[in-house]
């Protein structure tokens, strides 16, 4: 490796700012970072979903508003919103041939994922803080 790379530039410097969107490997790295977070959070999430599925209102609120559930759900909804935004962006860039449509779709996707993430955060915070105030 050392003999092959005679430049003083680091491997990172060689990719920073490259690519179609001039973001280097940022996209690639963030997709993997959120994928790992999702992988770790999915087990407690499925536990919460299984526990709350089909329950009456009071029981479902008690399960979802528990501090452990609230923290898991908050982390997951933020990580998923970032992950799904990147994933959909890649699909849009692959399949929409018209550049104007592509730019509009990428912006719409970003707004939509931000809204989904924020609505999720709002709902979880309202449930968990509401429990504290009761």
């Amino acid at each position: 490796m050392a003999t092959q790379n005679r430049s003083f530039r680091t491997p990172r410097a060689n990719v920073t700012g490259l690519g179609a969107a001039h973001h280097g490997t940022e996209h690639f790295w963030r997709q993997r970072l959120t994928a790992l977070a999702n992988l770790l959070l999915i087990v407690p999430f499925l536990w919460i979903l299984a526990a709350a599925y089909g329950r009456d209102y009071a029981s479902a609120v008690a399960i979802v508003s528990h501090p452990f559930s609230a923290v898991v759900l908050l982390l997951l909804v933020v990580s998923v919103a970032i992950h799904m935004r990147i994933g959909m962006t890649v699909v849009i860039e692959d399949y929409l041939p018209n550049k104007a449509q592509r730019v509009v779709a990428v912006i719409a996707n970003t707004f939509f994922c931000a809204a989904v993430g924020l609505v999720g955060v709002f709902a979880i915070v309202k449930l968990s803080v509401g429990r504290l105030l009761l």
């Binding site: 609120v61 999720g120 709002f122 709902a123 979880i124 309202k126």
Partner: peptide, 10 residues
């Protein structure tokens, strides 16, 4: 859908 479920609960 999952976020919709959480919002309905909230």
């Amino acid at each position: 859908l999952i976020v919709g479920w959480l919002l309905a609960l909230a």
